[in-house]
Design a protein around this nucleic acid. Sequence first.
DNA 1: TATGAATGAGCTTTCATTCAT
DNA 2: AATGAATGAAAGCTCATTCAT
Lengths: 208, 208, 208, 208
Amino acid sequence: MSLTLHSSVDSRKDKETVILDAACRVFREKGFHQARITDIAQAAGISYGLVYHYFKSKSDLFDAILKEWWTGLFNLMEKWDNGETSVEDQLAALVAYFLEQYQKKPDLVHIFITEISRSAANLTPARLHWFKMFLSSTEKIMSVGQANKILRTDIKARYLTYIFLGAIESFVSAMVLENQPLRSKAQKLRIAVGLLQVFMNGARPVKQ
Amino acid sequence: MSLTLHSSVDSRKDKETVILDAACRVFREKGFHQARITDIAQAAGISYGLVYHYFKSKSDLFDAILKEWWTGLFNLMEKWDNGETSVEDQLAALVAYFLEQYQKKPDLVHIFITEISRSAANLTPARLHWFKMFLSSTEKIMSVGQANKILRTDIKARYLTYIFLGAIESFVSAMVLENQPLRSKAQKLRIAVGLLQVFMNGARPVKQ
Amino acid sequence: MSLTLHSSVDSRKDKETVILDAACRVFREKGFHQARITDIAQAAGISYGLVYHYFKSKSDLFDAILKEWWTGLFNLMEKWDNGETSVEDQLAALVAYFLEQYQKKPDLVHIFITEISRSAANLTPARLHWFKMFLSSTEKIMSVGQANKILRTDIKARYLTYIFLGAIESFVSAMVLENQPLRSKAQKLRIAVGLLQVFMNGARPVKQ
Amino acid sequence: MSLTLHSSVDSRKDKETVILDAACRVFREKGFHQARITDIAQAAGISYGLVYHYFKSKSDLFDAILKEWWTGLFNLMEKWDNGETSVEDQLAALVAYFLEQYQKKPDLVHIFITEISRSAANLTPARLHWFKMFLSSTEKIMSVGQANKILRTDIKARYLTYIFLGAIESFVSAMVLENQPLRSKAQKLRIAVGLLQVFMNGARPVKQ
DNA sequence: TATGAATGAGCTTTCATTCAT
DNA sequence: AATGAATGAAAGCTCATTCAT
């Protein structure tokens, strides 16, 4: 009996995951507004009515997907609150997070880029809140980098933030568009290092 | 009489322009799919029926907006066919085009970025065609830059293209998001130079 | 001056006729509801606004077309009120009227058949009124024919009416469909005679 | 359990039938173009959205109605391919089919006449295809009748086809218009025989 | 849990009609 | 007389969401 219950709970989690994965795929393919619940249900191999058994609404389902993204990201960033991690390491860790996520869930990264980062103007208040928190945290890193003279100061910290995220996003978008998989750990490292190098080179202080 | 006729022709053009401008604004605010004809008509101060007097459909209206963008861009790029312009100058001209357009029509630039560049996966065939032509042309510039040893070759020309465009887009997106106006010619130049510098620095060949 | 006025009146008539002819063509091609004022104006070589200068509405324009039809038909039939014309001659005259009209204005006949005769269930009260008057008059002829023993009585006069008109309509429809012109007077006569013969043969009293 | 499943399947069929019947009624009353989905839904006692749950579009719904008509008709006619049925019997069977259908589904017959037979000029390609097949098959019967000297040859087989179908249609139209029900089998037979007689008499070869 | 029937708000588009010029 | 800009009612269709089974 208890086994049944347990497996039933697991089954709930499993089904939720199946739906979330399907939704991820469909949201990435069509975008939030163009994605239909029917599409998601079909992709998950269930009836569309069942989606509402697990999620309150389309919006709710979307937020559940985003939650995964933000949880991972803020878990990572809150470790830096003690100030012991170098700017380079923090930026490297950010790049690494994007690439790791891209490896595990490319759709999730793509959704973040297109539906959040690139659509910031139209976000719901809750979604905007998380995004702004993320921007602020990244901007703080840039400010420290400027204070430490490893980043140029003739471009505002917020702009450096945009450039940095833009570079990551471009790279990832490109890989999505080209359908490029991240095969080995080595390859991931090489790209991460290259990407960071391009940014740090580009953003290093100019000799007057 | 000729004046009347002339002003009548102008009136049609004027109204078309009013609609196009309103559409530009609304498409930027809400995105193509979320923008309603009613919104556009309201923004233009006319009834929704009139939109269809000037444009065949919502899609047609959108294409009319894009046409302006592509016309300007390809007019610029076809001058380089003779091979007499340096890679740096071509890239600088591209940056300048984006910034100039952003100054004149920030919404247009934003639409290009969000609806074309960042949504390439869902474009209509016609729209994809133009975008791919643009990508190819830019990639060709990067290839020449690599051949001339002013751009690193450990990153594929197509990826350099994405990074370059991504940097421009990030910058412009940031300005859109921050509602940052481009006040003086000097400011525009400074940003363009800075942006190009960041890219060229970041993308310059690595000493082995 | 008076010449000018006169020619102006003529010009009004002319333009009205042009519109009526165009409308006839378009109504026949598309049916009343599918015909657009724009189509008619285009067919007439004028702007759609001008149609409303000559006719109050689309419905009004349609009625103006029908008026031509009914006027001719009732002009013909009222001559028979004195009872001096034989049943055969009356039926022959009816056939002749349809064929003549078909020769002069095939579209008009087609409109009568499809929009009035075959759509009797949906007519406006005014249009239904005229149609019912025509049916009654024709039925009266059939009744006389039955009384005179030249038409079978085992089929109600009203049904004979439908068959008779149905035969004419079939023939004319066929000619319309096959795009068959009525070339000579002789040909017209031959068809009229044949058609009448088919009906009279078919409808003649059965020997018990 | 199996009962529940079965009744569920039935329920889908039932609802489809309810919609088809309602559509039949409305299409007959207003014609295809004037019939609104709302009308059909109202007639079926459901919401308009549900119509789209069962049928892809208004056109699709219309075709579903026509399919019933053509299926019955071609099932009947393909039995004659072996050439063993006499011309009279074939024509009689056609008349009978129209009358039987009229008895069961008068709206269906009316729709065929007004929307297909009488509107052949504006049919969609698919609809025209079926209609032309039917015309050809009927024309073939007439040709055989002419070869067998039981039908006059001074009228082309195709024209005889039009007259024959026109006679049936007139009759049926009349019954529709007069709201005349077909009460008994005997009555149906009498009308069928009368109708065929009228045609065969009218179309029999003329003695020279 | 699971299904899909049922609903209706909401969107694009068409087109008769009006009216300023 | 003549044009076509302007309006808005009306219709087809989509799809998130609810709910009976």
